[in-house]
Design a protein around this nucleic acid. Structure first.
Lengths: 221, 221
DNA sequence: ACCTGAACACCGTTCAAGT
DNA sequence: ACCTGAACACCGTTCAAGT
């Protein structure tokens, strides 16, 4: 039995740590990620991680950023000046792609919700949507608002399912206390459909409302 | 020195625990709330809390519900049938009141974001908005969507500041990597104004869009 | 019923020691 | 440079013991 203090080839790499951490978060949730547990999953002892990251939080930030990197931004690339129809379509497609990325990794959303901070992929997303809106003719201050309000909506929809937030138990909803929640216990089993529908409805309303505003602000569509 | 095992008058009450826990969350954040720390704040030892709550999470749920209870719902009370203008105003005022409550206690928002579950005040909110929308003439499925999408937006806006999610450090935004984020470092200091503006813009867009949809669905306004 | 200290199985992180 | 075990100061929760 060798005492293996330092192997000739490193056992860990930041990439492998992030990948395994993401798998652990996806499979068992944020709470399952302790430095000891993650290290065990990687076949090393807990303190080894500190050779590659300064804190556990840095690992989670890296996992979050790897999810941000999955957001498609290609719809912003060929957005011409002043073509009103285009920013709307691009914003819609981006929101859907954004939400899809978060729905694929719901357990890391609380970390993403802190904002981009210094995370490169997070900043690329913010840069792309802001640049595209300004390029499409929105005044800078409004472009900032659009980036913000889209983030509110997408994060809010990904952070917690609306339907899943209700318990699957009719007796929880006493008609005397909650006269209109007689069907609420059915929400849980329809969860995906209900949330999908609400997301689409809200996104459309948001874009319709922004289109009205764009016309007022002097856009060409 | 008495060995005080059980005082004649209880030292704790669920109300006092929740109040002190809320103060601790507000002042120092969720992470500061450990059972030992909270107990110390209450002048008792850690395990005492388990005489009043089954788990630490139940305490946090109670704190969250005490915040939900601060959301004004009076605007839904006198909402007549089919008066299209009214549901819009009510929804706006409710969203503002909802957001204000969350902004006053931002550190508990992650707990609220899980959804109402079995929390009475959370269910009352859901009941009121759903009942009001149905009462105003929205089809039930749409009323559910409205409750959900408003929650997405308000939660998202309260969960993490958009502006505050950027670091206050110009060197973090290399123009080569992020060509449009040259002013991003200014967001942090304008945080409140930027978020306030984005919230109002998004809320208006949402309501404008829903009004269009209401007209299509056969509403009277 | 309601509080206590001790105990259990955990945490994140530091650090000297190994190669 | 990169891994180790030991150690520190914490966790949430259980439980027998006290009144």
């Amino acid at each position: 039995m060798c005492a293996m203090a330092r192997p000739r080839k490193p056992l860990l790499s930041t990439d492998r740590i992030v990948r395994v951490a993401r798998e652990l978060v996806d499979a068992e949730g944020l709470a399952a990620v302790s430095t000891r547990r993650l290290a065990a999953e990687l076949g090393v002892s807990g303190p080894s991680l500190y050779n590659h990251f300064r804190t556990k939080d840095e690992i989670l930030e890296a996992v979050a950023d790897s999810v941000s990197a999955q957001v498609d931004l290609s719809m912003f690339e060929d957005l011409g000046q002043g073509e009103g129809r285009d920013w709307r379509t691009a914003l819609h497609d981006w929101a859907v792609s954004y939400r899809t990325a978060l729905r694929d990794h719901p357990n890391i959303v609380p970390v993403l919700a802190r904002g981009p901070g210094r995370r490169p992929a997070g900043l690329r997303v913010a840069d792309a949507v802001y640049g595209a809106m300004v390029g499409a003719g929105w005044p800078p201050a409004q472009a900032t608002s659009i980036g913000a309000l889209m983030r509110y909506f997408v994060m809010g929809s990904a952070l917690g399912s609306f339907a899943g937030g209700f318990v699957d138990d009719a007796s929880a909803y006493d008609p005397a206390d909650y006269p209109h929640l007689g069907q609420a216990h059915l929400l849980a089993e329809q969860q995906e459909k209900v949330d999908e529908r609400a997301f689409e409805t809200g996104l459309r309303a948001l874009l319709d409302g922004l289109s009205e505003q764009f016309a007022r602000v002097g856009g060409t569509a």
